[in-house]
Design a protein around this nucleic acid. Structure first.
Lengths: 186, 186
DNA sequence: TGAAAAAGTGAGTCGCCACTCATTATCGTA
DNA sequence: TACGATAATGAGTGGCGACTCACTTTTTCA
C-alpha cells in the first residue's frame, strides 16, 4: 500500500482541518446519523469539498474515530503515570463516562467500531491500554484477581451506552459507577 | 377522550393481529429502523393496510412497546412469587439481558421510550415493579441498603444496551453480570 | 341477495440524504 | 505574471422510506 503523500495545497489543507473539526462537533452532538451537509455548513465549505477529502461518509467517521481513539489511549497513559496505581482504572471509567455524555462518538467507538466501520487494530490498542490499567489495579489490590479484560470492556461500553441513551445526570453517573466499582473490588 | 371501540370487521381484526406479529418480529431482528414495508411484506398485507391500522410508524412501535412492557411487568410478578425473595432481582437482570440480546426492542423500551415515543406511565409501571424486587432483595439481605432504584434501572438498561450493541455471548453476559451483582451485594 | 359501509391495495408523492460532475476559482511555480 | 495543476463549488441524481388516495374488494346486515 504505497502512501499517497503528495503535499496538499494550502487551501486544501486548511479545509481538511476545518472539516475534521466541524465533523467532530456535529457527530458528537447529533450522533453519526447527522448529515454530511451539516458538517459542510459548519465547516463553511461546500458539500463537494467534504466528499473530495473523504470519498465516503464512513471515511470521515473513521478518521474522527481514529483521532478520538488516539486521544483516549494517550489519556490512559497519562492516568497510568499520574494516578496512584490502584485508582487509575476507576479514574478512567469515570472520565470516559463523563466524556461519552458530551460526545456521543465515544459510543460508536466502544460498541461497534470494529464491526461497521473497520478501524483495524485501533480498538485493540485501547483494549491493551485498559488491560494495563486493570493489571495495575489488581497488583495494587483494588480489583479482584478473577476479573478479566472482556468484562471490564463490556462494563465500560455498557455504562457509557447507558449514560448517553438514558441521559444520566452527574449524580446518577456517580451512583451507578459506585456499584460497578464495588463489584470490581475484592 | 371517548374510546372509539367500533367493533372491527373480521378481516380488519385478522390483519391487525398479523401486522402486530410481523412488526414484533421485524423490529426485534432489525431494530426500530426497519422499514414499514418490510413489516407489511412479512404480514402478507399491502403497505396501505399497515397505515390504515397505525397512522404513523411511531404508533405501531408504541403498540409493540406497550405489549412488551406488559409482558415484562408480568414476568416480574411471576419472579416475585416463584423465586426466593433475595434472588428475584438477580434473576430478572439475567433474564432481561438474555432477552435483549434476542429482541432489540427491549433496548428502546429501557433507553428512551419515555422520551421519543410517549408511553405515558407505562415505563413507570416497570420501574415500580423493579422497585418491588429491589426492596425484597434488600429485606432478604442480598442487596445493600444504600442502593436505590435509579441506579438499578440505569444498570439494567446499561447492561442490556451493552450486550446488544456489543454482541456479548452468553459467557460474557454471565461474567459481566457477576460483577454487577457483586457490586449490589452487601 | 344486494347494496352501503368498511377495509384493502399499491402506485405515486414528498422530503431527506449520500454522492457526482461540469464549471469556476485558487494555488504554485517558471 | 501567466499558466497548468489542483481544489472548491453547488445544482443535480438516485435511492430509500414514510405516508396518501383513488380505486377495488370484502364484509355485514336488512
Amino acid at each position: 500500500m504505497p502512501s499517497d503523500d503528495k503535499p496538499l495545497r494550502a487551501d486544501a489543507l486548511r479545509n481538511r482541518v476545518r472539516i475534521l473539526e466541524a465533523a467532530e462537533q456535529v457527530f458528537s452532538e447529533r450522533g453519526p446519523a447527522a448529515s454530511t451537509e451539516e458538517v459542510a455548513n459548519r465547516a463553511g465549505v461546500a458539500i463537494g469539498t467534504v466528499f473530495r477529502h473523504f470519498p465516503t461518509k464512513g471515511d470521515l467517521l473513521r478518521e474522527i474515530m481514529k483521532s478520538l481513539l488516539a486521544r483516549l489511549v494517550s489519556d490512559v497513559e497519562t492516568l497510568q503515570r499520574d494516578s496512584p496505581p490502584g485508582a487509575a482504572l476507576f479514574a478512567f471509567f469515570t472520565a470516559l463516562v463523563a466524556q461519552a455524555a458530551r460526545q456521543k462518538t465515544v459510543l460508536d467507538l466502544l460498541a461497534q467500531a470494529g464491526t461497521e466501520l473497520s478501524i483495524p487494530d485501533a480498538v485493540g490498542m485501547l483494549e491493551r491500554s485498559v488491560d494495563g490499567l486493570l493489571h495495575s489495579a489488581q497488583d495494587a489490590g483494588t480489583v479482584r484477581r478473577d476479573v478479566r479484560l472482556p468484562e471490564v470492556m463490556a462494563l465500560l461500553s455498557a455504562v457509557c451506552q447507558g449514560a448517553v441513551t438514558g441521559g444520566w445526570d452527574e449524580r446518577l453517573q456517580t451512583r451507578t459507577l459506585a456499584v460497578v466499582f464495588a463489584g470490581l473490588a475484592p
